[in-house]
Simulated assay, not measured.
Amino acid sequence: MFDKLKTRWNLKSTYQVVIVLVVFACTGFTILFIKKPIVAWIAGSEESSLLYSILYYMFILPVYNIILLAYGFVFGQFTFFWEFEKKMWSRITGKKYNNDAD
Rank of each mutant, 00 (worst) to 15 (best):
R8D: 10
R8E: 15
W9G: 10
N10P: 10
N10A: 03
N10L: 06
L11I: 07
K12M: 02
S13Y: 07
T14Q: 13
Y15R: 14
Q16F: 09
Q16S: 12
V17W: 07
V18I: 14
V18R: 12
I19H: 07
V20N: 08
V20A: 14
V22I: 11
V22P: 07
F24G: 14
F24I: 11
A25N: 11
A25V: 06
C26N: 12
C26S: 02
T27W: 02
G28W: 03
G28A: 10
G28Q: 00
F29Y: 12
F29L: 12
F29I: 15
T30R: 01
T30P: 02
I31D: 01
L32W: 12
F33L: 13
K35T: 04
K35M: 12
K36L: 13
I38Q: 01
I38N: 01
I38P: 05
V39E: 12
A40H: 15
A40Q: 08
A40G: 13
W41M: 15
W41Q: 15
W41R: 08
W41G: 15
I42E: 02
I42K: 03
I42G: 04
I42H: 09
A43R: 02
S45I: 06
E46I: 12
E46R: 14
E46A: 07
E47G: 06
E47V: 01
S48G: 11
S48Q: 02
S49E: 03
S49A: 07
L50H: 11
L51Y: 06
Y52G: 06
I54H: 08
I54G: 07
L55G: 03
Y56S: 05
Y56H: 00
Y57H: 11
Y57S: 08
Y57F: 13
F59L: 13
I60W: 02
L61M: 12
V63K: 02
V63A: 08
Y64D: 07
Y64Q: 11
N65R: 05
N65G: 14
I66K: 00
I66W: 09
I66P: 00
I66H: 00
I67H: 00
I67N: 06
L69K: 06
L69Q: 09
L69F: 00
A70Q: 04
Y71M: 13
G72E: 01
G72W: 08
F73N: 11
V74Y: 09
V74M: 08
F75P: 00
G76E: 05
Q77E: 15
F78K: 08
T79M: 10
F81Y: 10
F81C: 05
F81H: 02
W82I: 07
W82R: 12
W82V: 03
W82G: 03
E83N: 12
